[in-house]
Write a protein that binds this DNA or RNA. Structure first.
Ligand code: FES
Ligand code: FES
Lengths: 145, 145
DNA sequence: CGAATAAAAGACAAAAATATCTTTTATTCA
DNA sequence: TGAATAAAAGATATTTTTGTCTTTTATTCG
């Protein structure tokens, strides 16, 4: 059990990969992306379709087609990926699974859990999709294995 | 997608419930626990069996039987519940799903994710199972809905 | 002992997440 | 125009998680 679902893990890796290759106007295809982030190709395709519909990434069909991200898109927060794929439960939900997280009728973990959740939220909102482009291109940061 | 699995959510709620009723030596049964934490009875039974084998909780069969926690057990950290049920991946795993989290070959989120993960870990280790007993008994804290 | 109780254990079912394969649609380019 | 390319879409399969039901085992107590 990781903190994020496989869907979100693959999505974040793929988006970082696409972002780092969008700087120079190139458009990696599904196969290339899947290989470089070590994910199942067709499963990733579904995820990218959803991200594309959600406006996080863009795509072009046919020869020389592939996925890319608009310059403005590179500024969007990582959180948008999670929200697009699975909603905002992870940002707002009760840590112990109560149907809603409440100040007035809290679960035992509420006060401390809130801090963890806020830090996670903060991390995902302050990190932008294009933030690691140069480190990814130089290989200082990794997306597979 | 919550931060924890249903299994862990139910487990934490149940253990808090059992803990708060172990102070006075009473032993709630599966049915009572499931009703009070709002969980599926037989699914919870499986979870409690595992926690029992793991030594987190104790049980007695037959009339007047049920679940309880030893006085010493009340001091154990909440983290033990997670570890017993699903191992320690949530405490050590890579946020983006790489096969292991590494300082020397990190994923883009590593530095920030590490902080979130550490805070979560810290919360689960510093919180003890019996910590909320009185607030739970007075109803200041809630475990259902 | 024998009936009643309650957890343990096992079998099964449903739902969700993950993964794979095939067909269709849009685009390029010779 | 027609062949090739690549994403979109649809269908199906597998695995994991979650949930339910039944049988067994241990214990109590009359
Ligand atoms: S009520 Fe549980 S985290 Fe807020
Ligand atoms: S390498 Fe990804 S969190 Fe450490």
């Amino acid at each position: 059990m990781g903190l994020f679902s496989k869907t979100c893990e693959y999505a974040m890796r793929a988006v970082f990969y696409i972002a780092s290759h969008s700087a120079d106007g190139s458009r990696p295809g599904i196969k290339e992306i899947a290989e470089n982030i070590n994910s199942p190709e067709h499963f990733l395709a579904k995820i990218l379709q959803k991200l594309s519909k959600g406006g996080i990434i863009s795509s072009i069909k046919g020869p020389n087609g592939g996925f890319y991200i608009e310059p403005n898109g590179l500024k969007r927060p990582l959180a948008d990926i999670i929200t697009c794929l699975e909603g905002d439960e992870i940002f707002t939900g009760c840590g112990m699974g109560l149907s809603y997280c409440s100040e007035s009728n809290p679960c035992p973990l509420h006060n401390e859990f809130k801090k963890v959740r806020n830090q996670l939220t903060h991390m995902l909102y302050k990190t932008s999709i294009g933030e690691f482009n140069s480190e990814l291109l130089t290989g200082a940061l990794t997306l597979n294995k």
